[in-house]
Amino acid sequence: MTAFLLGVAIFLLANVAAGLVRVIRGPTQADRVVAAQLFGTTGVAILLVLSVAMDARPLRDVALIFALLAVVISVAFVKRGWVRAPGQPSRAEPSLPREEP
């Protein structure tokens, strides 16, 4: 059973490694954020499987933190990180102070 659980963890980690391709050559910034979001969820699954395989209870708390973390990154991206192209309107975005060069 332990070997099977570790095999599942290896498979999920291989999924993470494959999703890296989307981070590296995602055409837009949002694609990269989506890939990071998938990392967070797959990390939660890996930690849950490992918590049974390694018989370690605190790993489920780490999984909880992982679940929160991907949300923090995505919300920070939407609220502060998404840079508008010059022609685009900025929706519900307070204009940052632009300093003189």
Binding site: L13, I24, Q29, A35, A36, I46, V62, F66, L69
Partner: peptide, 22 residues
């Protein structure tokens, strides 16, 4: 921007490494 997202993924993987190290 890609570097920032890679940094986040690196943090997740490093946390997994710490988990594996006990």
């Amino acid at each position: 921007f890609e570097a920032i997202m890679l940094y986040v993924a690196y943090g997740l993987t490093l946390a997994l490494a710490w988990v594996r190290l006990g």
